[in-house]
């Protein structure tokens, strides 16, 4: 079905006929079907309000934090767990699926405590283990060299790009199965954006990544697969190269060529 590395292509998760309603009434996602491939980067693109962030936030059940939201349909993982299942605890889902947000949102705590928080939530108290995992996460987020001498400084003293890499380290420290990135560079300058994009390329060797982006160039640069969404529907899902060079749908062609959106 897809050209690239067909033999290696494993499904990490599968979105199956997903409908989502905000506040019980606003029908934000309509019968979404989408595969998520293991250790690949999948980008979700589309004009504002198309539902790409809504879909992303289904993967870690963020919608459960607000009353009245309702899911219909499933997101199955490769272990046969339905992330949206009624009996599945959203807390457990969030322990497997990490998220990085649009604006860097470090806690007003030290750099170390920011990265260690996910581990502390999981009950890790051993200082040596914490130190080792914090270092590992900061290495993986390409931030270790810049902060290793000031782990006890406040996170808010870092620059915007560093703060976002800190948030990525915080999300990685708990070795998640899937990493969700919600427009992670929209608040950053071009240099910081480039460093995050490079990081995404490195990270996909370890973790499955879903990224929402409003920048088509970014989707083209960092992703292996791209989903184009419009008005709550999945218009087209394919390999990124296909989406940008030979889209099957007219709407996709119009969007990626900049004719609307």
């Amino acid at each position: 079905m897809y050209n690239q590395n067909q033999t290696e292509l494993l499904k990490k998760a599968e979105v199956d006929k997903l409908d989502f309603f905000y506040d019980g009434t606003v029908h934000a996602l309509k019968k979404i079907n989408m595969p998520v491939f293991d250790r690949k980067v999948t980008a979700m693109i589309g004009p504002s309000g198309c539902g790409k962030t809504t879909l992303l936030r289904c993967f870690n059940r963020m919608h459960d934090l607000y009353p009245g939201n309702r899911y219909e349909g499933d997101i199955w993982t490769d272990q046969g767990i339905n992330l949206l299942g009624r009996k599945v605890d959203p807390i457990e889902v969030r322990m497997r699926v990490s998220m990085v947000f649009q604006k860097p949102n470090p806690f007003p705590k030290s750099i170390f405590e920011n990265v260690a928080y996910g581990l502390r939530v999981r009950g890790e108290k051993n200082r040596a283990v914490l130190e080792q995992k914090v270092e590992e996460a900061l290495q993986n987020a390409a931030l270790w060299k810049e902060v290793k001498d000031r782990l006890n400084d406040l996170a808010s003293n870092l620059s915007g790009g560093q703060q976002q890499r800190l948030c990525i380290a915080r999300a990685l420290a708990t070795t998640p199965e899937i990493l969700l990135l919600d427009e992670p560079t929209s608040a950053l300058d071009p240099i910081a954006t480039a460093s995050i994009e490079e990081l995404i390329g490195d990270l996909k060797e370890r973790v499955t990544i879903l990224i929402v982006t409003h920048s088509m160039q970014q989707a083209a640069r960092v992703s292996d697969f791209t989903a184009f969404m419009y008005m709550g529907e999945m218009v087209e899902f394919n390999e990124t190269s296909q989406i940008f060079t030979q889209p099957a749908q007219q709407q996709t062609a119009d969007y990626v060529s900049g004719r609307f959106g």
Partner: peptide
Amino acid sequence: PGNVREAAYALGATKWQVIWDH
């Protein structure tokens, strides 16, 4: 800010952990 709260929940914190730690 709501996004700091969400950051804590996204790491798998329970409501009480969010209240007590943040």
